[in-house]
Design a binder for these strands. Structure first.
Lengths: 259, 259
DNA sequence: ATCATTATGATCGATTTCGATTGATTTTGA
DNA sequence: TCAAAATCAATCGAAATCGATCATAATGAT
C-alpha cells in the first residue's frame, strides 16, 4: 500500500467527516472520498464508527447529521420530490430577508431549510417557536428569540397560551409561515387548533406574512383554520401549483413566487 | 550513543511535543520525530508519559490534544471526576421528584444529567429555560413547558425579560437550580446578570428551591448575585465539600445532602 | 575505576489501518 | 415487475504503526 506523505490521523479525518456532514446536513460517500482522498472502504468504516458514537446517522449513499434529522427524509424517500422544492422555496425566501431585519420562523420542514440558510446571517433577529429551528441556530448565527409555551412533540413546536404571551411582546418585519394545507376557498389550515392560534397571533404581529408551501399542499384542507388569504402578503410555492391558483391569488393582490 | 550538540532535556522535549499537539490539534509521530530530531521510539515513550499525565490523547499514528476532546458531550467524559459527582447528585435529586409534580430545570451540566433521568417520568411537568434540557426531552418523556426569551449561546439558555413573562405565569413544586459558585458569605452567584435575574424569578415562584452544585463550586464567587442562602431549601453537593459548609448551612435550616 | 541507573536508538514480530476485490443487497428506471 | 446500476459488507493482503526487547551511551554514586 502506498500511503500519502501526510495522511490525516484517523480521528482527525473522522472529525472532518463529522463536520462535513454537519455543515451540509448530509454527505455522500463518494463526495467524502474525493474530499478526503481515501477509499470508500475507509469512509464506510469511519461512518460506521461515527454512527456507533452517535455522531452521524448512516443512510444508503452516505450519512446525515444528527443535529437536524430533517434531511433524513431527503434520503429516506427519494420519491419525495417535495424536498428539492422545499429547498428551492427556502432559497427564494432567503432573498426576502433584508439587512438587520427581524423575522419569525414557523415550524415545519420548509422553514427548517430556511433556518439553515439563515445561520449565515448574523445581522438579523430570528423569532421562532420551532425547537428544530432553535437547534439549527444554537451553535452560531443570528440573534435568536424563542417563544416559550407548552411543547407539542408531534410538531416539535411551542404552542398554547404561554407562547402567545411572548409573541404579544414583539413584532417582526417578516413572518415565514408553513402550513399543512392551503386552498382558495378555505384559506390556510393546519392540524392543531393550538398551533393555528399561535400562527394567527404571529400573522397579526408581523409586517409581512410570507407563506412557504410546496405545491403538494395545494387544495389540501386540514382541521384547524389559521387565516384567510387577506392575511398573506407573499406565497412562495413551486411550478407544479395549478395555474388558477396563481392567477386568482395575484388578482387578490398576493404576490406569488415560483422559484 | 551519539547525542546531539544541544539535546533538549527530556521534560523540555515533552513540553514541546505537548505544545505542538495543542497548536495543531493533532500531531503525527513521524512529524514529531523530524521536528525534534529523535527516534520514533523516544517520541512514543514521550507520548506514553504525556498520556499518563493527561496532557494528550494517543491515537494510532500520533496524538490529539485533550482540548479538542473536551468539546465532546459531557456524557462522554467518563473519566472526568466532576462528571461522576454530577451524576450522583442528579440521581439523588431524582428521588425528590414526587408523583405528578411540576419541576423547574435550570441550565448547566448537573441539571442536564437530571434531565436525562427525568426522561423516564411521564407523570410530571418539566419547566425549563435550557435548550440542552429541552433537546434531551424532545423525543419522549414528561410534559415540557419551555420559557421563551432571548437565547444566550454561551449557556444555551433563555434569558431576559421575555423569559420572565412566561415564568410569572406558572408555579412549580420544585426548582432544581445550578450555579457557577456558592459561598457562605456571598450566597449564590453566576456569570451573567440576566441569568441571575431569571434564576431569582424562578426561585420566588417555586415551592422548594434545590441547589445542585458539586464541591468544585464551593467558595467560588462569580460576577452576578443570584440570591442569598435563605432562598435555598436543599443543597445537594458531594462529600468533598468542606465540613464547615455543611455545618453552617444546616445550622441555618438548609438541608444538605451528600450522596 | 566500577557499577547501577537512566535515556535513547535499533530491531522484530504483532497489531492496526487502509485499499482493492468480490459477491450480496439496495436503489433506480424502464 | 424486472434488470441495470449503485451501494454495501466481508474478506484479504500490503503498508504503516506499535510495543517489547535488547544494545549502547551518558551520568552519577560508591
Amino acid at each position: 500500500m502506498i500511503q500519502e506523505a501526510h495522511p490525516a490521523l484517523a480521528p482527525e479525518r473522522r472529525d472532518r467527516i463529522r463536520n462535513l456532514v454537519r455543515e451540509g446536513g448530509v454527505a455522500r460517500v463518494e463526495d467524502l472520498r474525493k474530499n478526503l482522498k481515501v477509499s470508500v472502504a475507509t469512509i464506510r468504516r469511519d461512518l460506521e464508527i461515527l454512527e456507533e458514537e452517535g455522531k452521524v446517522k448512516r443512510v444508503h449513499g452516505g450519512a446525515v447529521s444528527m443535529e437536524s434529522r430533517l434531511e433524513e427524509s431527503v434520503f429516506d424517500d427519494k420519491t419525495n420530490l417535495a424536498s428539492k422544492q422545499k429547498k428551492k422555496i427556502a432559497e427564494d425566501a432567503l432573498t426576502l430577508v433584508g439587512h438587520e431585519e427581524s423575522v419569525f420562523l414557523d415550524g415545519g420542514s420548509t422553514t427548517l431549510f430556511l433556518a439553515r440558510l439563515l445561520k449565515q446571517r448574523t445581522d438579523i433577529t430570528v423569532v421562532t417557536n420551532s425547537v428544530r429551528a432553535m437547534e439549527e441556530l444554537a451553535d452560531s448565527g443570528p440573534r435568536v428569540i424563542f417563544t416559550g409555551g407548552e411543547f407539542r412533540r408531534i410538531s416539535q413546536t411551542m404552542v398554547g397560551p404561554l407562547s402567545t404571551v411572548v409573541l404579544e411582546q414583539i413584532r417582526v418585519d417578516k413572518a415565514f409561515m408553513g402550513t399543512m394545507g392551503f386552498c382558495l376557498k378555505n384559506g390556510i389550515t393546519t392540524t392543531d387548533p393550538n398551533e393555528a392560534y399561535v400562527k394567527r397571533v404571529v400573522s397579526e404581529n408581523a409586517g409581512q406574512v410570507i407563506l412557504l408551501a410546496d405545491s403538494t399542499k395545494a387544495d389540501k384542507v386540514s382541521f384547524a383554520r389559521v387565516s384567510d388569504w387577506d392575511q398573506v402578503d407573499i406565497l412562495i410555492t413551486d411550478q407544479a401549483v395549478p395555474k388558477h391558483f396563481t392567477k386568482t391569488l395575484r388578482k387578490r393582490g398576493i404576490k406569488v413566487r415560483l422559484p
